[in-house]
């Protein structure tokens, strides 16, 4: 099997008021093509940092290890190049873009990615038709396309907007950073369906979550437990149930 996402010994730090603070401390992770993996871990274990490092956020400095995707050195690429290659990060806190129309933004993003992938760009009419179908599918109001990106959106609307972007950009690796936080059960189901609809032999996902609940809807192939900047345990979906019942304590102790 070809390597799809392959992370080895990854170390990353962030500048904390002038002193570097190491957050990822030698992380190993492989996600084969077509698989959905989940990462669970206590607060401060470095889950969000991992998602930002994979998406290319500049303020995190990679100090060691490697991360490759489809055989390419991911860490060498600009964020937009990673997106073109198929990486998509659903943000834990989606960013508001006042003055930027949501439909225009989505079309700009879709066409930038299509251009980079050597596909034909969508004209305004074709794009709007597609966007309307997708919003309906996510039970989103068409009004959300006319508004500024995420401005005045409720927490649930913002997360649906992330899933809308994901559906439109057709990534081959989706990283969902606590997409379930702040969602009620209906919204959670819709978001999960959005992810599940993309599942297939060419789609992988890394689902970062605190709660087992999301994993009832998006059933993962593997579950990894993360603590202190490393993966300390990996197993099947049953690990999530075990965590929900017993907490992180036993895994933390076993990793000592």
């Amino acid at each position: 099997m070809n390597d799809f996402l392959k992370i080895e010994g990854l170390k990353a730090q962030i500048d904390a008021d002038g002193t570097p603070k190491e957050i990822l401390k030698g992380l190993d992770l492989n996600i084969p093509k077509g698989e959905v993996h989940a990462i669970m871990g206590p607060n401060g274990s470095g889950k969000s940092t991992l998602s930002y490092v994979l998406a290319g956020r500049e303020e995190y400095e990679v100090t060691g290890g490697t991360a490759s995707f489809k055989g390419q050195d991911l860490l060498e690429l600009e964020p937009e190049e990673r997106a073109a290659l198929g990486v998509f990060l659903a943000f834990q806190s989606p960013v508001e873009l006042p003055g930027v129309n949501n439909a225009n933004f989505l079309r700009t993003a879709v066409n930038a990615v299509r251009r980079a992938r050597g596909e034909e760009e969508l004209d305004a009419v074709a794009f709007l038709k597609l966007a309307r179908e997708e919003t309906a599918r996510l039970s989103m109001s068409g009004e959300m396309l006319k508004r500024a990106v995420n401005v005045g959106f409720s927490g649930g609307e913002k997360k649906r907007n992330e899933v809308l972007q994901m559906r439109l950009l057709q990534p081959s690796l989706a990283i969902l950073d606590e997409t379930d936080s702040g969602l009620d059960i209906d919204a959670l189901r819709i978001v999960a369906e959005g992810v599940n609809s993309l599942r297939g032999p060419d789609f992988s996902a890394l689902v970062i979550t605190h709660h087992q609940r999301l994993l009832e809807y998006i059933v993962p192939d593997r579950v990894h437990v993360m603590a202190h900047g490393r993966i300390i345990h990996s197993g099947g979906p049953e690990v999530a149930t075990q965590l929900e019942k017993q907490g992180y304590k036993q895994f933390l102790e076993a990793a000592q």
């Binding site: 960013v95 873009l97 003055g99």
Partner: peptide
């Protein structure tokens, strides 16, 4: 805003285009 720039770039929008779009949004409002 670096957060806004990164958000746009992570959706595939090239940096220069993302900067222009944010400047225009600032004026457009």
């Amino acid at each position: 805003d670096e957060d806004q720039l990164f958000y746009m770039r992570s959706r595939g929008v090239p940096e220069a285009q993302a900067r222009d779009a944010l400047v225009q949004a600032f004026l457009f409002e």
